[in-house]
């Protein structure tokens, strides 16, 4: 009780420090919000140049962006890629995390290193050789290549996020299930998955957000018909040709809304602090 009050008391210098910190953070957040607002306002503007606010508002840019960039197709591809990556990395990653959390087999440290490496090397480094290999195997340039490339960072990510979650489960629960004759498959479906649901959900939702945002790997492996939203957006900005930047802004807002929706769902289920796990 006494100790807690001591932690709460403030000296004048600490007060100044705290006020300064809040100010800096507030400025950061305010500027950041204004930046998003600028894009939002511009995406609804008929035209906007050099004034505080645009003269008139319209929604035509959303319609034209949708048509011009074939957003329906892009969104379908994005959903297919992201869905496949989430499901496959869950199916591969969760069992692997279980094995790594519960067994001490020889070479375990090596396996952990193998899983840590893709997260410690920039995506471009392995993205370029990977794209070369996939093109030689005739797997790149289509949706399969994009899915395969995106598995490289997500499988290790799921494994490393899930290990601490699994370690928290009392092994005696599994022993009891085994005693009653459950095989490994039944153990997973009936016992582990329900117990691990929050962890699995957290890991997979984060994989989802990461995959939507993964630019480099998709960029290197996608063909014209297998671009995800983030790559299509980049091409929209970068490709030569006259394009109204309102139209690009409208598309960015659609992108943000898509990701934000999923992130908000993720945050409803889990405390964001748990998402990254505890570094050891």
């Amino acid at each position: 009780m006494f100790a807690e009050r001591a932690l709460g008391t403030r000296t004048p210098s600490e007060l100044i420090w705290s006020v300064a910190l809040w100010t800096v953070m507030g400025l950061f957040v305010a500027n950041f919000m204004l930046m998003i607002l600028a894009v939002l306002v511009n995406s609804f503007a008929t035209q906007w140049f050099g004034t505080w606010l645009p003269p008139a508002f319209t929604t035509k840019w959303y319609v034209s962006a949708w048509r011009e960039f074939q957003l329906d197709q892009v969104l379908v591809v994005t959903m297919m890629v992201v869905g496949a990556v989430v499901v496959i990395s869950g199916l591969i990653g969760v069992p692997a995390a279980y094995a790594l959390a519960r067994r001490n087999f020889p070479g375990k440290r090596f396996v952990l290193l193998l899983l840590l490496l893709p997260l410690m090397v920039p995506p471009i480094t392995y993205g370029i050789p990977l794209a070369t290999v996939l093109y030689e195997a005739r797997l790149a340039g289509n949706i399969w290549g994009v899915i395969l490339a995106n598995l490289v960072p997500t499988v290790p990510f799921v494994v490393l996020v899930m290990i601490p979650f699994i370690e928290q489960i009392d092994p005696r629960i599994e022993q009891a299930a085994r005693l009653f004759g459950a095989g490994t498959g039944q153990l997973f479906v009936r016992v582990l998955v329900p117990l691990l649901a929050p962890g699995i959900l957290a890991a997979l939702l984060l994989v989802l957000v990461r995959t939507i945002a993964m630019f480099e790997l998709t960029f290197f492996t996608a063909g014209p018909s297998s671009q995800t939203l983030v790559v299509a957006l980049y091409y929209a900005v970068y490709a030569p040709g006259v394009r109204a930047n309102q139209s690009i802004d409208a598309m960015s807002i659609i992108y943000m809304a898509t990701t934000l929706l999923w992130l908000m769902i993720a945050l409803r289920f889990v405390n964001p602090v748990q998402l990254v796990g505890r570094p050891r």
């Binding site: 894009v39 957000v209 983030v230 957006l233 690009i248 992108y255 943000m256 990701t259």
Partner: peptide, 13 residues
């Protein structure tokens, strides 16, 4: 929130 923005929206913003 910045996680959700993606490189292009940040650039445009």
């Amino acid at each position: 929130v910045p996680i959700t923005l993606g490189p292009v929206l940040i650039a445009e913003g």
